[in-house]
Amino acid sequence: MLPAALAVGEVTLTCYVQARSPGTKAGGDDLYYNSSATTKLRFHQRRNIRFRYQRWDSATVTAPPDASCRSALRVEGTLLPIPDPPIDALSPNPVPSNGRLVEDLFAMKSATPGASGPEEIWFTMGNFGQGGVALPSTPWTGATDPTRAVSAHEVAHMFNQSHLNHPVCGPNNGDALSAFPDNGQVIVIGWDQWANQEMRGATDLMSYCWATAWMSPERWHRLFLKVGQ
C-alpha cells in the first residue's frame, strides 16, 4: 500500500524481490536470488472530499454507534477514487428523527460556504438496516446506514451511477446485469486494507448484494471520470 502523500505527480516505483533457497549454496549456506523492476507511475490530481455525518435516533430506533459511522465512511473512502477523506460529525449528534433529516442537512449544507458542492458529502446515518438514499434534488446529501456497502453505494448514486439489477439480491430498477462487464461480478481480487484481507467473489456495489459488495474496475473507472478533479 503506497502512502497517499507519495501518490502525487510522477513517481518512480521500484520493486525488489528476494528469494532465499535455504542451504543450497556450496558449503550449505543459503542461496539468494534477487530481482527488481522499475516503472514510472503518474498520479492524477483528484478531488478532495470531506465527509460530514449526523446520526439519528427515534423512539423506536437507537442511533448507530459513532465509531461504526466513522468506520463505514473511512472504509468507503478507500473504495472511491478520492484521497482519504476527512470525516467530521455534525452536532447535535444524534439528532431526533423528524421525517426530513436529508432535507435539513441539504439546507444546512447550502448555507455553508465551501460545502455546497461535491467537495463535501453529508450523510444522515441511521442504525444498521435503515438503508440509504441519495436523490438528485439534494445533491451530495443523503442517508445511509453505517455499512461501507450502503454508504459507498449512495456516494456512487451522487455521482450519477444507477442501480445494477441482480436476479437474486435485487434491485430491478437499474441497468441490466448483462450490459455490465463480467455480469457485475468483480473478477479481480480486492484488498480490504482495513480488515487486512482479500475480497474474493464480490459483486459490483450498485446491486443490492450488500454482503459481497465491492468496487468493480468498471465502476471505479466510471466514478473516476465523474468525481473529477
Binding site: Q130, G132, L135, P136, S137, A143, D145, V150, H153, H163
Partner: peptide, 19 residues
Amino acid sequence: ATVTDADVCRTDDFQIDVG
C-alpha cells in the same frame, strides 16, 4: 421538474421526489 421515484436502498420504502 425532475421527478425521481427513488428506492430507499436496502429497505422496501420508496419516495417520489420533485426538484
